[in-house]
Structure formats: structure tokens, C-alpha cells
Amino acid sequence: MPTETEQSQAAAHRLYGMAASFDSPEAILAAAEKIHAAGYRRTEGYTPYAVEGLCESLGFHHTGIPLMVFVGGIVGGLGGYFMLWYANVVSYPWNIGGKTPNSWPAFIPISFEMTILGAATMALFGMLILNGLPSPYHPMFRAPTFELASQTRFFVCIEAADPQFDLERTREFLMSLDPLAVMEVPW
């Protein structure tokens, strides 16, 4: 029979982290601030709707989305204009009353639409790629009552990979935040 310490060490190796659940966004925000103040960095909150300030309290600030969308828009716009310019100046120029082939006012609507298209598709794919979605499996799905994370409950999880993680001390710390429940999250 393995000893208790060996058992708990083995459990810690199979662990993704330890999670606590709350029932209001104010509670999880307060908890998140305390968790960050205690020095935990590999943390994440799981909420049924966006809670303002939550990921900032956990130490995450820059999304990178705006830059990607901007680049997507530029690529779309320049690409669209290039297509119009190439078709009308290089590939098949017409002489229409001596007017310039690079008739840029007439090229505005399509270039504008291509800018929007480029930016919007970049918003979608940028968000998905940076979020790592689709990700059909994640250890948190095996936490008990986690199905409520998309409905009414607010979870916060400290990963076992965090340098400050210790099975007993982290569990005590999470209990001290006055949650509804504290649970271990297996891999």
C-alpha cells in the first residue's frame, strides 16, 4: 500500500490544477485579486459571460487582436486595389475617351469592401487562433460541476504547473477565499 505522502505526491503529478467556484462576478473578481497578490501566475478564470477586469486582475493585458485586424484590413485593401489596378492598367487597359486607366475613384468601393472583408476574417481567425480554438478537450471539463461555468457559476483555477503550487497550501489558500467549492482538476 503506498503511503499517504506518496499517494498525495502521485495525485499532484496527475493533477492539472486546483479550482474554486463562486456564484457572482464580484466574488470572483475579489478572489482573482487575492490570487494574483499571493503570487500565482498560471491562473485562469472561467465565467458564463465576460467579467470586466477579471483577466486584468489575473495579470493578462494585451490581446493582440487589434493589430491583427488592422493588418488584415490593410492586406485586404491593398490586395483589392492591386487587383483592380492590375486588371485595368496592366492586363487589359481600355482607352475610354483618353481617361486614365488607373481611375482610382471608381476603384474605391471595391477596395473598401475588400478592406472590411480582410479585417473581419482576420478578427475571426485571429481570435480563434490566439485562443487556441477549436479545442475540443481541456482538463477543466473534468472538474466537477464545470458545466455550470457556461451558465451560472464562476470558476478560477490555479494550475499545478505554477511554480508556487503546492497541493495542501494552495487548497487552504483557495478555501480562505470563501468559495462555493474547491476541487481538484485531473488531467
Binding site: G45, T47, A50, F60, I65, M127, L128, N131, S150
Partner: peptide
């Protein structure tokens, strides 16, 4: 749902997008 789990970092990117 693409495996959406309501992670706060995901929400932040989602809201920005």
C-alpha cells in the same frame, strides 16, 4: 462551440474581436 470554456483570456479576446 469549438470547445469554448469561458476562459477569461478568451473572453477578453472575444470581446475585442
Amino acid at each position: 462551440s469549438l470547445g469554448w470554456r469561458g476562459a477569461s483570456r478568451h473572453w477578453k479576446r472575444y470581446q475585442t474581436a
